[in-house]
């Protein structure tokens, strides 16, 4: 098993964990953590892809850019979570189902 296989497997496992968490968890902060785990899997995949194609610099710079962009999403998501806790009195995503139809 080469390091690349390890990286690819790791990326898939992280994606799977993240996706499961996204579907199964009900706490909004945990949902955002699950999202973060998915992104970490993709970061790994980008670095591995750069290494496979011989473009190590490109892959790594993309990974760094992704981390920046993803942090902003996490910050916005957590800011929304704070407001949700304030207005709904709970972080349960099941409560967020007043809009229908």
């Amino acid at each position: 098993m080469t390091p690349l296989h390890v990286a690819a497997t790791g990326a898939l496992v992280l994606l799977g964990i993240g996706l499961y968490g996204l579907l199964a968890l009900r706490n909004l902060i945990k949902v955002i953590i699950a999202l973060q785990i998915m992104v970490k899997g993709v970061v790994l995949a980008l670095v591995a892809a750069g290494s496979i194609s011989g473009q190590i610099n490109l892959g790594q710079s993309l990974a760094v850019t992704l981390i920046v962009a993803d942090t902003i999403v996490a910050v916005v998501g957590l800011a929304l979570a704070v407001q949700v806790r304030r207005r709904f009195g709970s972080l349960d995503v099941q409560e967020l189902s007043t809009l229908r139809g």
């Binding site: 994606l15 993240g18 996204l22 909004l28 949902v31 999202l35 998915m38 992104v39 993709v42 995949a45 980008l46 591995a48 892809a49 750069g50 194609s53 473009q55 490109l58 892959g59 993309l62 992704l66 999403v73 916005v76 998501g77 929304l80 979570a81 407001q83 949700v84 207005r87 709904f88 995503v93 967020l96 189902s97 007043t98 809009l99």
Partner: peptide
């Protein structure tokens, strides 16, 4: 807020999948 959360979670997952696609293309 509810609309924002729904939108954020769905779009963020979409973005993750796009980057995964980019990794595959690379």
């Amino acid at each position: 807020l509810e609309a924002g959360v729904k939108y954020l979670v769905q779009s963020a997952v979409g973005s993750v999948l796009v980057v995964l696609g980019i990794a595959l293309v690379l």
